[in-house]
Amino acid sequence: MVKRIQFARTGGPEVLELVDGEPRDPAPGEVRVANKAIGLNFIDIYFRTGLYPTELPSGLGTEAAGVVDAVGQGVSDFEPGDRVAYAQGPLGAYSEYHVLPAEKVIQLPDTIGMEQAAAGMLKGLTVQYLLRQTYPLQGGETILFHAAAGGVGSIACQWARALGVRLIGTVSSSEKAEIASHNGAWAVIDYTKENVVERVRELTDGAMCPVVYDSVGRDTWETSLDCLSPRGTLVSFGNASGPVEGVNLAILNKKGSLFVTRPSLGGYADTRERFEMMCRDLFDVIERGDVEIHIGHRYRLAEAGEAQQALAERRTSGSTILLP
């Protein structure tokens, strides 16, 4: 029997159930992974609450690291015993075992641990496309990154520093300000005490930022636009405070002919070739020591609801993982 988390209705953390089931055999082109560590991400909450609809009952989670347990017909790139990680695919990573397409799985270098991979795959690949593809940073830019002490933000601070980029991070407490600074943020703004737009204006001598990375959503939408320089780009990649709605496109003209994009990992890692390229880039910065994956919290699989609640209430820093 295999223990896994599922939900039969959308709602709060209480809808998550720990259930038993038989592990499914992999179909042609699939692999079955015995998970050793599971990543926790905001997108999991979006599915649980119904913001991102899915057929119910459903498993949850898209990210984990483990060992290949079985392979389906036609799979030649993996065999039982291989150390692997994944960040995309069908929901169901909140489980002791998960079956998914082999094309969504990557071989894990021996230099990267299971917990490290589970905590850093989705977040690290997110930072890869944000900094290297959505708005390719060249070095020397001064940028704004919201939630700089979170899982994605912690990686972004380090990667930006390695690229020679001055990252201004926003945080919600002095403790998180210390975390962001330690990770390489050039400057940190505690939005509970400071006006973000005014502080960005001071830090940039009025020039503002060519790009703002925003995973918060509704609460920071206007602030993010006001922190951009003329013809700047707002990269909206999350909805931690709720989705941005009722957007008036004319405001982009009024505030300086601005650009807005809403990217996703699936939109960038849309082919096996691109997925492998992005993983190589991520693994390289980890192995060089430019990026360290910080695991701030560990929960048992049965505590998935509690872990999600802590994430939603912004009581976490760094990455959070579940241990099956």
Rank of each mutant, 00 (worst) to 15 (best):
V2C: 07
V2T: 11
F7Q: 05
G11D: 13
P13K: 13
P13D: 11
V15Q: 00
L16A: 01
L16D: 00
E17M: 11
L18E: 13
D25K: 15
A27T: 01
P28L: 12
P28C: 09
G29H: 11
V31N: 12
R32S: 15
R32K: 15
N35L: 10
I38E: 09
G39S: 13
I43G: 13
T49R: 15
G50C: 08
P53S: 07
T54M: 10
T54H: 11
G59H: 05
G61L: 09
T62G: 12
V71L: 10
G72I: 12
G72K: 12
Q73A: 15
Q73W: 09
P80R: 09
P80V: 04
D82G: 05
R83Y: 00
V84C: 02
A85L: 08
A85D: 00
L91A: 04
G92H: 05
A93S: 14
E96A: 04
L100M: 02
L100D: 02
P109S: 06
D110W: 02
G113Y: 01
G113H: 00
E115G: 04
E115K: 11
Q116I: 01
A117N: 03
L122P: 01
R132E: 07
Q133A: 11
T134Q: 14
Y135N: 00
Y135V: 10
L137S: 02
L137W: 05
I143G: 08
F145N: 02
H146F: 11
A149Q: 05
G150H: 04
V152N: 03
V152M: 07
V152R: 01
Q158A: 05
W159I: 03
A160N: 11
V165H: 08
G169W: 06
V171Y: 01
K176E: 12
K176Y: 11
K176C: 13
A177P: 05
A177C: 05
N183G: 04
N183W: 11
V188F: 01
V188D: 00
V188W: 02
I189R: 14
E194H: 01
V197S: 06
E198G: 00
V200P: 08
E202H: 08
L203M: 09
G206N: 06
V211L: 09
D214W: 03
S215P: 14
S215E: 06
G217Q: 07
D219T: 12
P230V: 06
R231Y: 10
G232L: 04
L234C: 02
V235L: 02
V235H: 09
S236G: 10
A240W: 09
G242I: 03
V244K: 05
V244G: 02
V244P: 04
E245C: 08
V247R: 15
V247Q: 15
N248H: 13
L249Y: 12
A250P: 00
I251R: 15
K255L: 13
G256Y: 10
V260G: 06
S264P: 08
L265W: 10
G266F: 06
D270F: 12
T271V: 08
F275Y: 15
E276G: 09
R280T: 13
E287S: 14
E292Q: 14
I293H: 08
L301E: 09
E303M: 01
A304N: 05
A304K: 01
L311I: 07
L311T: 05
L311H: 06
R315Y: 06
S317L: 03
S319V: 06
I321F: 03
